[in-house]
């Protein structure tokens, strides 16, 4: 029963993950891209929790905590960069971020 349950959650997680990916691909605003990535990370976290529950282990949830911590760290750096971008480019549109290219 729990297997089925876990797999169902996994499907939800996968849908979330794809949604996040779609968000990264479609959004032009950096903030929204970051948000989408957060969604993906959380989808992965959800999958971990589901897996952990499948095997009746706490490891999945431990992992989720790490993911949260890492996401927070990442976002803090990201926001600092966003500020700099806003400062330098006066926009948050990624399409404006094309100075580095061949």
């Amino acid at each position: 029963m729990s297997t089925l349950h876990a797999h169902t959650v996994l499907i939800v997680a996968a849908i979330l993950f794809v949604l996040g990916l779609a968000g990264v691909l479609t959004r032009k605003n950096i903030i929204f891209m970051l948000l989408s990535i957060e969604i993906m990370l959380n989808a992965a976290g959800l999958a971990f929790v589901a897996a952990g529950s499948r095997w009746q282990q706490p490891d999945g949830q431990v992992m989720y905590l790490f993911i949260l911590a890492m996401a927070a760290a990442e976002v803090s750096v990201a926001l600092a960069l966003v500020l700099q971008i806003q400062h330098q480019h006066k926009t948050l549109d990624v399409e404006e971020l094309k100075e580095l290219k061949d």
């Binding site: 990264v24 691909l25 990624v94 399409e95 971020l97 094309k98 100075e99 290219k101 061949d102």
Partner: peptide, 11 residues
Amino acid sequence: VSQNGSLRWYV
């Protein structure tokens, strides 16, 4: 051409 600097393309 693939190295066009566009982040979305990289994704």
